[in-house]
Design a protein around this nucleic acid. Sequence first.
DNA 1: AGTAGACCTGAGTA
DNA 2: ATACTCAGGTCTA
Length: 281
Amino acid sequence: MITFTFPNEYFSPKATLECGQTFRFSPCGESAWLVLCADKACLLKEYAAEVHVSCEEADEQYFRGYFDLETDYAALLKEAEAFGVPVLFEAVRFGRGLRILNQDKAECLLSFIVSQQNNIPRIKGNLSRLCAALGEKKRFAGYDYYTFPSLERLAERDEDFYRSLGLGYRARYVAASSKKLLEEGFSSVEGKTGAELKRALTAYPGIGNKVADCISLFAFRETAAFPVDTWIARLYRENFGGAETDREKINRFFVEKFGPNAGIFQQYLFYYKRERGDAAV
DNA sequence: AGTAGACCTGAGTA
DNA sequence: ATACTCAGGTCTA
């Protein structure tokens, strides 16, 4: 095991983990979290001025990439503030230290299928049961955890099995998309970006525009992908005086407004709106 | 092209 | 108590 550090001015484990981009983490006492992705685990500990990341020695580069540590968030926040939009300014202040993760593609794809018309605590429960049922048991830093299941294990189960885990009607989508992933991998999205990538992702059963944007942003580094869910639609109405109800139009409104990094700013806006929905700004 | 209804589930609210 | 609403939506008709 090794430990590397990163200044916490632009790395807040709490904001990064609790903003709804990942569902596989758990608090370990005070200011510490066990974070899981694919078959790997790491431990985050927050101190006064820095965050300590502990993981297997071979995984250091993986987690530096996972937490997006090469990206300059000081510049991004400056860019956000320069728009002069009050709610974005507040959101960036509130979520300071939130970083966009670079997640495992298959895990992200299936997780956000489960996320539709669902709430975060239940999504976490669904996914943790999924991993316990089909994943591999491992141990890191004294903690037991389950890996995200392989596509082979996922694809051999049917809808009824996923229903038994409590996924509800999403069970059919998980079963079908797992099979498609096992058969084709990501060949249909290979080399694609932007709107083409989004369109290719919506070809997986259970993936519409919103989930395709989430996967693009969280697993394909598409920083302009701007997911529009109920919270963002509410933000659009309440904070931007928007009248459109078509979520694709709302998506275009924000992408045109906030440009190539719109998706990153979306995450701050989503986190702020969900946590502080009653706030004046 | 655009829109209503159906769809699992469990926590929260009236 | 019991019903109703809502949650990081998608699909079908």
